[in-house]
Every structure is written in structure tokens, then in C-alpha cells.
Design a protein around this nucleic acid. Structure first.
Lengths: 146, 146
DNA sequence: AATATTCCATAGTATAATACTATAAAGCAA
DNA sequence: TTGCTTTATAGTATTATACTATGGAATATT
């Protein structure tokens, strides 16, 4: 129903790494992200380029280059991220070229509502809240190994 | 984001036709559905078979055969329909075989929430409500031609 | 029973989307 | 300059989607 694409999963995981690194005011290299998460190198590149184009991260080339967030993690919503990577959820055009019959409008209306509710949910998550959640989970996960 | 597949669109349009025909306690043939909506014949067959298997419609063969709904349109939710056609929205397995890391769980949790909200929306629509909506739209659409 | 009409079922193909890769170029710092 | 980094374009492999072909089985009418 809601398909979770590798694109979003990878992009989000990368951004979580960048969020953790946000305080250090230095750039995190793609290699380091790849090491932390298990993401195909060249594929991640493309995602980072998209994220840079839409202003979520910025980059620096050269020997101490890499990527970092442009804003604080609490000011980046999951909605921005998904929208950037997946593109705008456009009405999908009913196949047979713009025959906007009553029936098609009816169906698109419902799908639009579904989109709205998902987008609302995504807007309620910031990168920081996700990062915090992750830290929590890690902590309580550690306890099993003591 | 929410992708509206042809499968669901076609299936839903077919069911709307069956809903309109529900009173007549006779069977509506696939040809008639194809004539009303513009759906590829053999493709629609498969959808109808799926819908029959999950008990949403029943069929009758032979010279006065066809399809009809098994229950009244007000007792069929959009959720049943979508679930039948698209299958259960399963967690999608993180690609690299069941490595359920903390990070993957975090992401799957969010997607599960998104699914929940969409499913809740779909559950709130019955086939009858959609059929009524369609009739309304048609009526107000007619007015432009007077 | 014969026959026409309908659905049933499996399997196959064509197109498009997704995920991933290759390669060359260009910027930056030491 | 030289070695490190990102940038950009384009190409391939895999998978999902949408659709088709064909033969068969059930049913109602004659």
C-alpha cells in the first residue's frame, strides 16, 4: 500500500548519520556514511546530490570535504526528505491521457486524501525526533547484552 | 508517495458498476463492465477472479452468467477492496535478508504508522458511499450542459 | 445431448520503474 | 602539482506492472 523504497530508506539513514554528526561542524564523508550504514556507494552519491539540490544538505569538495546538514535536525521534517527523494506525489494522470471523467476524479480525490494524511504524519516527524528515537532504541537494545 | 495502481483503479471502477447494478438481482457480464468503463478485458478478468476468491463478488457461468456483489455495497469497504487487489502491506523486508537492525526497525515503524492512517481512511469509505458520491458528481456535472 | 455462451486458470510478453554501476571531469587543500 | 573529494551523465540489471494468448470447464438454452 505504502511502498517503502530503497531510495527513501537509504537517504534517511544517511541523514540520520549526518544528524548525529551535526554538532561537530565538520563534514562527514560519503565513505563514512557507507561504513556506518550499508549503502551502495555510488547510489548514495546520487541521493546526496538530490538532497543538496533541494537544500537539505550542503557539500564541500577536497581533502576535508564531505556533507553536512544545512539546518539543525529539528528543523528538517521527514516530509521534506521524502518529497525531495520521491518527488511530489502528483495525481498520476489516469493513463489514457487526461480523460478526466467523473469516475477518475472521484478516485483521485480519495488518493489525494490518503496522501494528505500521510504527508501530515511525515510533517510531524523531524530528523531530530527520529535521531532521538534511534538513540532510545539503541539504549534499550543494549540492555539485552548485559 | 501513495501510488495509485491501475489494478486498484480498474478494480474499483468495476465494483462501482456492480454496485449500481446491485438491486437488479441479476448478473452483470464482464463485457458490460468493459463497455461502461474502459478496461482491458482479459486484465479485468484476473482482477475479478481475485475479488471472487476473497469473497467480494461471486460469479455465474453460462449464458446468463456474469458477476455480482456478495454483500450490499454499504457493507464493502474500500479497505477490503484495496487489500484484496494489492495484497497485505507487509513490512517489505529491508532488502538484505532480515537484518533487523535498530535503524531498520525505526524506519519500518514509521511506515507502519503511515499505513495505519491510510488504512483507517480506506476503512471509512464504503462502496455505497463512493457510488453515491459518483452520482452526486454526475448530477452537478450535467448542469453545465443545460 | 449438442451447442453457444460465459467464466476459469495458467503462463507468457512488453513496457516501465527501480536499483545500482561506470567513467570521466572538476573543485579543493596541502 | 598531486591526491583527495564531490559532480554529472549515462548506461545496465533486476524487478514490478500492465496486459495478452490460449485452452479448458461450467452453465443455460435448444
Amino acid at each position: 500500500m505504502m511502498k517503502l523504497s530503497a531510495k527513501v530508506r537509504y537517504g534517511l539513514l544517511a541523514l540520520l548519520e549526518l544528524a548525529d554528526h551535526y554538532q561537530q561542524s565538520s563534514f562527514l564523508q560519503v565513505d563514512e556514511i557507507v561504513a556506518a550504514q550499508n549503502i551502495p556507494y555510488r547510489y548514495l552519491m546520487q541521493l546526496l546530490i538530490s538532497l543538496r539540490r533541494s537544500g537539505i544538505v550542503r557539500s564541500h569538495r577536497g581533502i576535508k570535504g564531505g556533507y553536512c546538514l544545512t539546518k539543525a535536525p529539528e528543523n528538517i521534517t521527514l516530509l521534506e526528505i521524502v518529497t525531495c527523494l520521491e518527488g511530489i506525489p502528483q495525481p498520476e494522470k489516469s493513463g489514457q491521457a487526461s480523460v478526466e471523467s467523473v469516475d477518475n476524479l472521484l478516485i483521485e480525490d480519495i488518493w489525494s486524501q490518503a496522501n494528505q494524511s500521510v504527508m501530515q504524519l511525515f510533517a510531524s516527524y523531524s530528523l531530530k525526533s527520529l535521531s532521538d528515537k534511534r538513540k532510545e532504541s539503541r539504549k534499550s537494545n543494549q540492555m539485552y547484552y548485559i
